[in-house]
Nucleic acid binder design. Structure first.
Length: 157
DNA sequence: GCCAACGTTGGC
DNA sequence: GCCAACGTTGGC
């Protein structure tokens, strides 16, 4: 099992939005960055995913989700009227992928960006790198252990 | 609101 | 293939 992190601006889609979705699950549509897309394509059912609120008050990891469905073509790339429509993508060779994410558990409290920056063992974490804008990133098992430890949760699900 | 950092586009 | 210009992200 691998570990990941996804960012979302809560003003567009928050942890609470995920939690209140049918089956606590949503399709993670709209990723339009190749590196992030490649990570989506690597995800396996059951992989664990940290859910991060960006441009938020506070900026923080707020919960754990899991991969409920592995990568499939992002339908929004074919919808002409959709904001994320990509005229260069074809049905034969879809350019963009999405996965389904399911909320597993909320953190007891948000684990804020300053706390993450202060934590020993997270200095290499993609989220914390200067200028990192990647909306989907890989998390190492050690980083996962540190983050869930700080949050005071086990990963029992 | 500012602006550094980044990814993408397009002219050459 | 290079790289300047541009648009976007996202912390502050």
């Amino acid at each position: 099992m691998k570990y990941w992190l996804v960012k979302s601006e809560p003003s567009s889609f928050s942890w609470d939005d995920l939690w209140s979705s049918p089956k606590r699950t949503t399709s993670w549509e709209g990723v339009r960055n190749y590196q992030a897309r490649n990570f989506l394509r690597e995800m396996k059912r059951g992989d664990r995913v940290l859910f991060y609120h960006s441009s938020a008050e506070p900026n923080a990891i707020v919960g754990i989700a899991e991969v409920a469905r592995e990568a499939y073509p992002d339908p929004t790339q074919f919808e002409k009227k959709h904001e994320m429509y990509d005229p260069k993508s074809t049905r034969d060779d879809p350019r963009w992928s999405t996965v389904d994410l399911k909320a597993v558990r909320a953190f007891p409290r948000p684990l804020t960006l300053p706390e993450l920056r202060d934590a020993p063992g997270l200095d290499k974490m993609t989220l914390l790198q200067k200028g990192s804008r990647l909306s989907v990133s890989a998390v190492t098992p050690e980083e996962w252990r540190v983050v869930t430890g700080l949050a005071g949760v086990s990963d029992a699900g």
